[in-house]
């Protein structure tokens, strides 16, 4: 199982701060809206290295979790 970013749609406020920090350009706006009417993020998870920078850049404690693969 590769490393991956988990976005919790209902906890994302769509500020977009995670987009620029991702070295692998894995994050983008989903174009969909959550119950708070925020355009929440989505993660491609094609080349996540579990660097964790998106987690640290995110102001919302429950919005992003990064899971590192046992292989990496």
């Amino acid at each position: 199982m590769a490393s991956y970013i988990h976005i919790e749609p209902e906890n994302c406020k769509g500020c977009g701060l995670c987009i620029a920090v991702c070295p692998g350009k894995q994050l983008s706006f989903s174009g969909k809206f959550n119950q708070h009417s925020y355009n929440y993020m989505q993660a491609k998870n094609e080349a996540c290295t579990a660097c964790g920078l998106c987690y640290y850049a995110c102001p919302e404690p429950g919005a992003i979790a990064v899971h590192k693969s046992a292989a990496e």
Binding site: G62, I64, V66
Partner: peptide, 13 residues
Amino acid sequence: KQAEKSIQKPKSM
């Protein structure tokens, strides 16, 4: 999913 290590909301929250 199994992961070796996760970076997520701290336990002190």
